[in-house]
Design a protein around this nucleic acid. Sequence first.
DNA 1: TCACATTTAATTGTTCGCAATTGAATGTGG
DNA 2: CCACATTCAATTGCGAACAATTAAATGTGA
Lengths: 152, 152
Amino acid sequence: MPRKLSTLDPQRLDSQICFAVYSAAHAFNRVYKPLLDRLGLTYPQYLVMLVLWERDDVPVKDIGEKLFLDSGTLTPLLKRLEAAHLVKRTRSSEDERQVLIALTPQGHALKEKARGVPPSILAATDCSVSELVAMKDEIVALRDRLNAVIGE
Amino acid sequence: MPRKLSTLDPQRLDSQICFAVYSAAHAFNRVYKPLLDRLGLTYPQYLVMLVLWERDDVPVKDIGEKLFLDSGTLTPLLKRLEAAHLVKRTRSSEDERQVLIALTPQGHALKEKARGVPPSILAATDCSVSELVAMKDEIVALRDRLNAVIGE
DNA sequence: TCACATTTAATTGTTCGCAATTGAATGTGG
DNA sequence: CCACATTCAATTGCGAACAATTAAATGTGA
């Protein structure tokens, strides 16, 4: 009598935390989209801008380490940000292998326009800040354990 | 004296739950990759197979509703699964607008080969099942609230 | 110094993910 | 019954995401 086991079946879609994370990421993306459209940014471009608003004039590699992305993703993305006049890309003179990414005045200015984004997202989650912080910390811990397994 | 506020700054990358979810999704993907390579599947293809292993002979729309994906994503993906001889795509005779997706014998057989995937993922998370279930339920609830906002 | 490994970005090719549009089939109101 | 709207899948175009490779600059050991 294998009844009621279906909800525990590890091969069921709804049992899988990974699908929960995957589908939540897409849901976030859809909420961000109209907000970021006004800034002329995609979500990954917004992430790069967040990094640069914290610290400017950084090599591509540093951005990649913070966002867990490689040059195959970042190079074309940064070229689009450059085409949008938000960043400048210049070869480092000390180490010619590195390309340094710096904000333009427009890139700096966009930070003010983007100030309304996090509150809008917070409202959409319909959660308290403390709940979100707790969830975020759990998810980050999980992510870091997964990333630790990869580097084996 | 705006000191120590940086960790609470909503415009900081590390404050954002969305980045936690985004980067966790990518971390999961990297853990799944070597496991799914052996099955000849990508992660989204694996999700479609999970749906079909639960219920066969379903229209594209139903798959899309379960996975939150549209025909722009699913049509080419399903064609690849068909080219890999895992599914058949046939127009419904009752409603010629629908395309029904059915597993081939190889598609059915793959379920057995895929049985080892969830335990491997579980091991990689280094979490107890009950912890994961609790996190999963929280994330699903968050996702559903976000999706509710979109349909406004 | 010189051969060799390492680091860094860029490039190529494949697969998602989605917006917008198209076209065919079906449903509905008058 | 017929004009019209709706539904469904397919298509087009663009921007990620990543594996694999390339090329140039830098570091290292003999």
